[in-house]
């Protein structure tokens, strides 16, 4: 039996600013993970990944990142993805600034 498909979001870096973005249900790029559409079906996730990867004039490095679904929306399951939602830990120079 293949491994069970875990919930995912489509994520990338914005072409112009380089910062982390997530794909929303309306196929727009958002800076916030909470806006991201959570994908629970593998075939659907693959199609959205391929479509998003074709948007080369908007983003760079598109991939699927694992998330956990919670009442407060999707949450990262790996520390790397957690840092990507916030920014560096030595200065509040990333998304931490906006989150305040």
């Amino acid at each position: 039996m293949p491994a069970k498909f875990t919930p995912k979001v489509v994520t990338a870096n914005a072409l112009l600013e380089g910062d982390v973005v997530y794909l929303t249900a309306r196929d727009e790029w958002s800076r916030r993970l909470s806006d991201a559409k959570v994908l629970t079906d593998e075939a659907d996730a693959q199609i959205r990944l391929i479509d998003a990867s074709a948007r080369a004039s908007e983003v760079v490095g598109v991939y699927l990142a694992d998330v956990a679904t919670t009442d407060a929306g999707p949450k990262p399951t790996h520390f790397r993805e957690d840092f990507r939602t916030r920014g560096p830990s030595n200065y509040a120079h990333g998304k931490q600034v906006e989150a305040l």
Partner: peptide
């Protein structure tokens, strides 16, 4: 890359 520009985790 030939011109020293990388894409990192949160920015170029």
């Amino acid at each position: 890359l030939m011109n020293g520009l990388y894409l990192q985790l949160h920015a170029y």
